[in-house]
Design a protein around this nucleic acid. Structure first.
Length: 460
DNA sequence: GCATGATCATGC
DNA sequence: GCATGATCATGC
């Protein structure tokens, strides 16, 4: 058998090209290969590696194509509601060896050695397909050394390494970083490893390109990318350095001053987010720019009152009763969102009767909080829905009190309505016992305003 | 004053 | 029409 590990870059491209428009079944047929479907348990990636690129399954620390220095990745994308394309999953790279990787520099790291050139082969995932029928549609050689994102990726790598050096590998979260993440990888949450500067065992993790980052690559190289704005044109800066430069320029200015700087005259409710968009000189919303989308960063404006209070809690997207009860906490929408999303809060504080722009806070919820506090709220919510015990009582005005976990039960979050009105509902999987209703007002998880106040105490 | 239910406003 | 960010209203 040929040893595909010695293929050249040109070979790799030719072979990739030969797969375009075909499914695994079609590739095997064209090569007259028959494999017993029952005897292979490998994923599509492994099958392609073996049958298309002639590489034996291995767990080598070298790149798959050793001579060309290229790693092969087979990865899915999908079509979502509004006909847009989206990566189906993050791109998982090499497992992080906590005990050795910290001693390296970025360019001498295991990560760099294995992944600095990645041949991506994309296939279109569909609900009704399987690994033999998904069609390969595109390929692209990612050369990180010349990537416009290199600076940010290096900075992300360093951030992960810093946590290891600080003896905090067990506190690493995928949302800590922008493009390059550290995702959990292992049979289950109990797959743990030792770390060099702490006795606490840390979850096994691998470097990865986040789903949000992969989605932008999919749109750029496969889909339509004409409407996406970029905020940075300078390759020598990381995304976050650029943001800080912009923020420093306007920090300390009052809302009135900013309105005059940007020649805006508006009393709109979203006036602060309009001002933020102007600071970054984009025509749309900064949350829709390439950099924010890649890093899965959601911008939010926060208003702090004179006395330090934050009046309102912060809502998440509504959940569907029928869907949430079929999820497991470990891969629930809420947990995934919190694990993968970073928030960039633009803080406006009331000083002498006027809101002043005080700067930004970049934040993602620590996993310890997600898996302790938020989990409890989620579990109780699912339990209430499953038992059909949503409504606790109805007062004389018809206002209903629910058994969903409230603000006083948990330090971090609670469940409350989030709908156009009480009649704006989703179907229930189980009839509500108290009322007999088959549908109920849309609800969602909210982050408690008190928790937010603590989060922003540095701005007082 | 606070917790909780309810709803508004905007943009796609 | 709907999702989402933002806010209001009421009763204890």
């Amino acid at each position: 058998m040929k040893d595909g590990r010695h293929y050249s870059k040109e070979d790799i491209i030719l072979i990739s090209e030969s797969a375009i428009g075909k499914s695994l079944d079609e590739i095997l047929n064209s090569k007259l290969i028959k494999i017993g479907k029952d005897k292979n348990k490998g994923g599509l990636g492994q099958l392609i590696e073996y049958y298309l690129f002639d590489i034996e399954n291995n767990s080598e620390s070298e790149p798959d194509f050793i001579d060309a220095g290229i790693e092969l990745k087979v990865t899915p994308y999908k079509r979502i509601q509004n006909n847009q394309l989206s990566a189906k999953e993050r791109l998982v790279l090499n497992i992080i060896d906590y005990n050795t990787e910290f001693a390296n520099e970025f360019r001498s790291s295991h990560f760099w050695y294995k992944n600095n050139k990645i041949q991506i082969l994309w296939y279109l995932w569909t609900e009704d397909g399987n690994k033999y029928t998904y069609k390969f549609t595109n390929y692209k050689l990612l050369d990180l050394a010349i990537s416009e994102d290199l600076k940010q990726i290096e900075s992300d790598w360093n951030e992960i390494i810093t946590k290891i050096k600080d003896g905090r590998a067990h506190e690493i979260s995928e949302a800590d970083t922008m493009y390059l993440g550290a995702c959990t990888k292992g049979a289950n949450a109990n797959s743990v490893r030792t770390q060099p500067f702490s006795k606490i065992k840390a979850k096994q993790r691998a470097f990865c390109f986040k789903t949000s980052y992969m989605t932008q690559l999919v749109r750029k190289y496969i889909g339509d990318y004409s409407n996406v704005e970029k905020i940075i044109s300078d390759k020598s800066k990381t995304f976050i350095d650029y943001v800080n430069d912009v923020v420093d320029k306007y920090k300390g200015k009052t809302q009135k001053e900013l309105l005059s700087i940007f020649k805006l005259d508006s009393k709109a409710k979203n006036i602060n987010s309009m001002l933020v968009n102007r600071m970054f000189n984009v025509t749309g919303n900064i949350g829709e720019t390439e950099e924010f989308l890649k890093a899965n960063i959601i911008p939010r404006t926060i208003r702090i009152e004179e006395n330090g209070r934050i009046k309102e809690s912060m809502p998440f997207p509504t959940f569907k009763y029928k869907e949430i009860i079929n999820q497991k906490w470990e891969d629930s929408d809420l947990r995934n969102t919190l694990e993968e999303t970073k928030y960039m809060f633009f803080v406006f504080k009331m000083v002498d009767d006027e809101y002043v722009f005080k700067g930004i806070k970049l934040w993602n919820m620590p996993e310890i909080e997600i898996d302790n506090y938020v989990k409890k709220v989620w579990m109780k919510t699912v339990d209430v829905i499953k038992k059909g015990s949503i409504v606790k009582s109805i007062d004389s005005n018809g206002v209903r009190t629910t058994n969903f976990p409230g603000m006083s039960e948990n330090l971090i979050c609670h469940v409350r309505p989030h709908a156009a009105n009480a009649e704006d509902t989703y179907e229930l999987p189980v009839k509500d016992k108290h009322t007999g209703l088959n549908e109920y007002t849309k609800h969602c998880f909210w982050i408690n305003n008190k928790y937010l106040e603590k989060l922003f105490s540095e701005f007082l």
